[in-house]
């Protein structure tokens, strides 16, 4: 999703230090290297993907965000990015805490389980939704903790996590999420993008 890359990139200040958690093949890292900052690191759990990243010369280390963020000192990055991975952790809450410890700010993007297609799927078919952004069946999905934009919003509020910016991505359309349109955005957004700080 190139559009997501652009949105993330726009949230990042030039020449800042960033860490991409769950960096996959390193596509977002390369995008940011070209457009924003030369100072970017990656953490990835899959050996195969780490190999791809290192083959591209990217500074990626093999590791798991739930165990390996410990090694980074407090506030050692300006931004820590977690793109569409939060739902795959055993403890998303701990991971969010670690993101906010390691980074001055965190950018978290979540596939929105509150999207109308997901709701209709469950309502009409009575089966777990399978969509473009959530392509797996219930028995083989890596996603352990799905949430909606509203869920994440409430989570941040309850824990006094500041939301600097919250954006909705629906197809190619980007729009702001605010307190007033929250329920509506929760219905129409495929992806929620949050810039947060504690």
């Amino acid at each position: 999703m190139k559009k997501e890359f652009k949105v993330i990139s726009d949230l990042i200040e030039e020449k800042s230090r960033a860490l991409d958690i769950g960096c996959g093949d390193g596509n977002l890292m390369e995008y940011l290297l070209q457009n924003k900052t030369k100072d970017i690191r990656g953490l990835e759990i899959s050996k195969e993907k780490v190999q791809k990243c290192l083959s591209k010369g990217l500074a990626v280390i093999e590791g798991n965000a739930e165990n390996d963020l410990k090694q980074f000192p407090n506030k050692s990055f300006d931004y820590v990015i977690l793109s569409q991975t939060l739902q795959a952790f055993l403890s998303p809450e701990n991971v969010i805490n670690e993101l906010l410890r390691v980074g001055n700010r965190a950018i978290v993007t979540i596939p929105n389980f509150g999207h109308w297609k997901v709701r209709i799927d469950l309502l009409t078919k009575g089966t777990m939704p399978v969509t473009k952004n959530l392509p797996n069946e219930w028995f083989n999905t890596p996603n352990l903790h799905m949430c909606t934009i509203l869920d994440f919003y409430n989570f941040c509020k309850k824990r006094n996590i500041k939301i600097f910016k919250s954006l909705s991505l629906n197809g190619e359309k980007i729009s702001d999420i605010s307190q007033s349109n929250l329920k509506f955005k929760n219905l129409i957004s495929e992806l929620g993008i949050f810039l947060i700080e504690k």
């Binding site: 230090r17 690191r41 050996k47 780490v50 190999q51 990243c53 290192l54 990217l58 500074a59 990626v60 280390i61 093999e62 590791g63 090694q71 980074f72 000192p73 050692s76």
Partner: peptide, 15 residues
């Protein structure tokens, strides 16, 4: 790797 990360060094690691 951990020692280098603590410095913010440019480090890649794979097992």
């Amino acid at each position: 790797v951990i020692a280098l990360n603590a410095l913010g060094a440019d480090v890649g690691f794979i097992e």
